[in-house]
Design a protein around this nucleic acid. Structure first.
Lengths: 364, 364
DNA sequence: ACCCACGGTTTGATCGTTCAAACCCCTGTT
DNA sequence: AACAGGGGTTTGAACGATCAAACCGTGGGT
């Protein structure tokens, strides 16, 4: 029932002073190696762990990172955030950081929450998701000089190298390119693309992957004739592809901008009596694995690692000040990876036993 | 650039002492109304917010609750935790609490994490999910006298009213009962049940809902003949129902133990050429809403609210000590609610426009 | 011989809050 | 008139860490 050990306990055991213990923890390099080792051992012996509240109070830092949970799991893709969260928590843990959740009803509410977290010294930094053009949250965080990283590049922003605008994103173009190449490699040529209406950064980026793969392979073909557009969501995709098949189509396969679209397409395709028509999705959500849908995995582990690297430097244990990136890069683009399952095979095969599933590994 | 106001600033403005300000915040009843009001006004004027770190340090509490993120979003149902997390964060926020995430590779690792969080005074309490019979985490938390609540009742436990074992759960029986009644009300009688292999607490509980609804309506019929069993997951359900239809079945509808099972069943049913065969799932996952599957909503908002109520009392702002529940209940059973969509209609209808979707409201 | 610079360590002060005890003033009792 | 009791408020100490400045011994330059 003895209470938890403090710096003083460690100091006494290691025959040094409080501050030296603190230094071993926070600036190990300024302490003489042998002293450091003695302190380390004392720490181990007592099972000492710094009291976060005390550290927070004095240092004004919390060793915590805030991230907002999306208001509603927006359809199937909601689970992306879920998995990112998992990877982020894991990566943060490795650097002695913790993840604190935020929920908000709208942007203003979200900012109010961040403000409160800052006031209470509850978080050192913020991770933004679902960023938009001219995002008011970015403007606010920058103005308040709160360190933050955006997951999702600031589309159309002129500030790509602004050291106060850190972002990490998945290279959708590369992912869709891989998916398309995969079908081309299987001998298909009339490969269609099912995407979102033009105008969204992510959507346009992904479509470009299909475009380049197709023109590289087949020259200047009529891409528009192979493109179908649907709003994000299973039903709209299903309707779009249903009508495609009803009017007769020459397509031999389909690459989609998301798993939701792909799932809708799969359903339509099966009802049209073509159960082995190849379909590939994007995001590699649990649903994709559940129904055997080939999909592009975002490698959220790598994304999470990159997020922290931007925030804390290559191996730092502390969040860097806002705008202080030193000579390290201001953004990271992660290359996703295609996971092949039944849905992209050309003939019926056995149940998917998880064969090629290699994505989602935590890099570092 | 003025730094944030402190109790002293408020005290000075209100012409009282530090402690009185503190009292207004923490025990308003012991301070004279007129003084209280004066302090309140000063607080408002300065926009004062107590520094959480300082409060934590002195009070030895962190105003945070730890919860473990499942290692992998286990299939479609993974998103349940996701939504619970959202609801929990929201409910916690209303009580001035925050949610801190934990990831762990196995049970021992999980316990180690909890230990570290406790040592650093990082969390006041733990929320356990995916509890099992004879859960080592429960044993450890109880031994260490760390306040916790389990989401998921301790199946087969003899300790239902043990004040150190708090739990909240969803009444699966009631949910499946509702689903079955819904189909009965539409004139069906040969309603099948697709469930997990016997032996899991949750599964047996849900099946009982179907059993009672059926026997109440039709007397002592042969339930076994209407029951199908499949492992959790889309493919196994699909295979099971496929073979059911291949051998000819008299079933008129199907109630399932989960959305994954229901999705597999839907796929099989459609391929068997019976697109309007009614199927109902359980969990009301995003996938259910995406594909128009009727499903039982767990009312995770209510579950979250109940979780905090068990932990902090009906309206407390502070986590109660381990085992100190006073005269309030030691557990809460939440009644879920059926959400009707296309998949349980008997004839083709328009696209689901979100009609009956009323679940998932945050109760309080 | 003196002083300065410097790496490494210690000491005193401080972060903003809550706890525990002291304090003050008023009322009622003896 | 003295004292006990108690509501309401204030004062000093503490929570456990980090910061800033002081300290100390050593070596080099003048």
């Amino acid at each position: 029932m003895a209470s938890l050990p403090t710096v003083d306990d460690v100091a006494r055991l290691a025959q040094v002073s409080r501050q030296t213990v603190s230094n071993v923890l926070n600036s190990p390099d300024i302490v003489r190696p042998e002293t450091r080792q003695r302190v380390q051992q004392a720490i181990g012996e007592l099972g000492y762990r710094p009291n976060t509240s005390a550290r927070r109070l004095r240092a004004g830092s919390s060793s915590a990172i805030g991230i907002r949970l999306d208001p509603m799991s927006n359809g199937i893709s909601g689970s992306i955030l879920d998995r990112y969260l998992h990877a982020l928590t894991e990566a943060a843990d490795a650097r002695g950081m913790r993840i604190t959740l935020v929920v908000a009803t709208d942007v203003d509410d979200e900012i109010r929450h961040y403000e409160r977290l800052r006031d209470g010294a509850d978080v050192d930094a913020i991770v933004l998701t679902a960023t938009q053009y001219d995002d008011p949250r970015i403007a606010w965080l920058a103005r308040e000089r709160i360190p933050f990283v955006a997951f999702g590049r600031p589309w159309g922003a002129e500030t790509d190298d602004d050291p106060t605008r850190l972002w990490v994103d998945v290279d959708g173009q590369s992912g869709v390119h891989q998916a398309t190449r995969h079908l081309i490699g299987r001998g298909l040529s009339r490969i269609g693309y099912l995407g979102w209406p033009a105008g969204s950064g992510t959507g346009d980026d992904r479509r470009r992957g299909w475009e380049t793969a197709m023109t590289d392979a087949f020259g200047a073909i009529d891409l528009a004739a192979l493109t179908t557009v649907a709003e994000e969501g299973v039903p709209s995709a299903r309707i779009a592809i249903e009508s495609l098949f009803r009017h007769g189509t020459e397509l031999e396969g389909l690459v989609c901008a998301s798993d939701s679209l792909a799932l809708g397409a799969m359903m339509a395709v099966r009802e049209a009596g073509a159960p082995h028509f190849p379909v590939i999705g994007f995001d590699n959500t649990p649903v994709a694995s559940a129904v055997g849908l080939s999909s592009v995995d975002q490698r959220l582990g790598d994304v999470a690692a990159a997020t922290l690297e931007l925030l804390m430097g290559p191996s730092g244990q502390r969040v860097r000040a806002h705008g202080d990136v030193g000579d390290s890069p201001t953004h990271r683009l992660i290359t996703p990876q295609l996971v092949v399952r039944r849905s992209s095979h050309l003939a019926p095969v056995e149940e998917d036993a998880g064969g090629t599933e290699t994505g989602n590994r935590n890099g570092q």
